[in-house]
Computed example of a mutant assay.
Amino acid sequence: MRYVTLTDVFVHPVAQKYLKRSGVAHAIATAYHAYRLALNHGVNVDLATKAALLHDIGHYEWYSNGKWDYEKYKQNDIHAIKGAERAHKLLIRLGEHPKNAKEIALAILLHTDSYLPECELKRKPLQEIIKLADEADEEPGGKHHYRKIDDQLALKKIKQLDQLVEKQLQTQKLEDII
């Protein structure tokens, strides 16, 4: 059962504020990558697409002298921590099941290890998919955060992805009955 759709998340003012900061086009592309990867690895497409859409909402804007400072970002960023918190709070407010909200938040928290001391993370399948989906859309120097997309086209793509997710969940439900 879906408690909250991608569209519900996408149109919320909090999501809009932080998605625009971190890159709407990147968030949507990452959500589509997560959908494909979730299908291929038997992971819940609803959780995967929501986590991927929200994976960068914790970004802080690192500027020096009015210009984006990628090196400063790489050295000081903890966006996955802040993003996990923001996503969890937003999803709970929207009515997401608390267990789902926690899984999504943990996938956001662990989509990158750039803020951790050097170590090997053992990610769960959903967490690994969000990491891979993000990497599939990355561009050198963080340029993927600055690609533009028209607001109407962005909403259209989110609604299309919602339909794909819903169709997949219905198919899984039928397969579980049979």
Rank of each mutant, 00 (worst) to 15 (best):
Y35M: 00
D56Q: 06
A15Q: 05
H79C: 00
Q163I: 07
A29T: 12
Y32A: 11
L121K: 01
L169W: 04
K122F: 09
G58Q: 07
A105N: 07
R86Q: 11
Y35S: 01
H12K: 02
L164C: 06
A84S: 12
K82V: 13
Y3M: 14
E61S: 11
N44S: 05
A136Q: 02
L53A: 01
I28Y: 03
C119W: 09
D8L: 08
N65Y: 09
A27S: 14
A52W: 01
H59V: 02
A25H: 15
V9L: 08
V43P: 00
S114F: 03
D162W: 06
K102W: 09
D137I: 08
D77H: 02
Q127G: 03
H55Y: 03
R147A: 15
R93G: 14
A105L: 10
I108E: 00
N76P: 02
G58P: 08
R86W: 12
I149R: 09
M1S: 15
T5E: 10
K156H: 14
L91M: 13
A52C: 02
H59F: 06
R21P: 05
L6A: 08
I130R: 05
K148G: 04
E135M: 13
L90F: 07
A154C: 06
L94H: 10
Y18R: 05
S114W: 04
I178V: 15
K131V: 12
K156R: 15
I177V: 07
L47W: 00
I28L: 08
Y35W: 00
R147S: 14
K167E: 11
H144I: 07
A34P: 07
F10K: 05
A15R: 07
T171L: 15
I177K: 10
D8K: 10
A31H: 00
N40S: 15
D46W: 10
I158D: 08
H79A: 00
V43T: 00
Y146C: 14
H111I: 00
R21V: 13
D176E: 14
L121D: 02
A107R: 00
H55V: 06
V24N: 04
V11M: 08
L47E: 01
K148D: 13
L121M: 03
L90G: 04
H33S: 15
D151R: 09
K148S: 12
A133W: 05
Y35H: 00
I57C: 13
P13S: 05
K102R: 09
A15D: 04
I28D: 04
F10G: 05
E96I: 10
K143W: 10
K67V: 14
E166G: 06
D77R: 01
E135K: 12
R86M: 15
F10W: 06
N40W: 11
Q75A: 14
I104F: 09
Q163H: 08
D77E: 07
A31V: 01
L54N: 01
V165M: 01
E138R: 14
A38C: 07
V165N: 01
H111M: 02
K159C: 14
L174D: 02
F10T: 07
G95E: 05
I129F: 01
I81T: 13
T49S: 05
G142N: 03
G42L: 02
R147F: 15
L94M: 09
R36K: 14
A52G: 03
H145E: 12
L54G: 03
E139T: 06
H41S: 11
H145V: 09
H12N: 10
L94E: 10
E128G: 08
T171Q: 14
A136C: 01
L169T: 02
A87E: 10
E103L: 11
P13T: 04
I78K: 08
I129D: 04
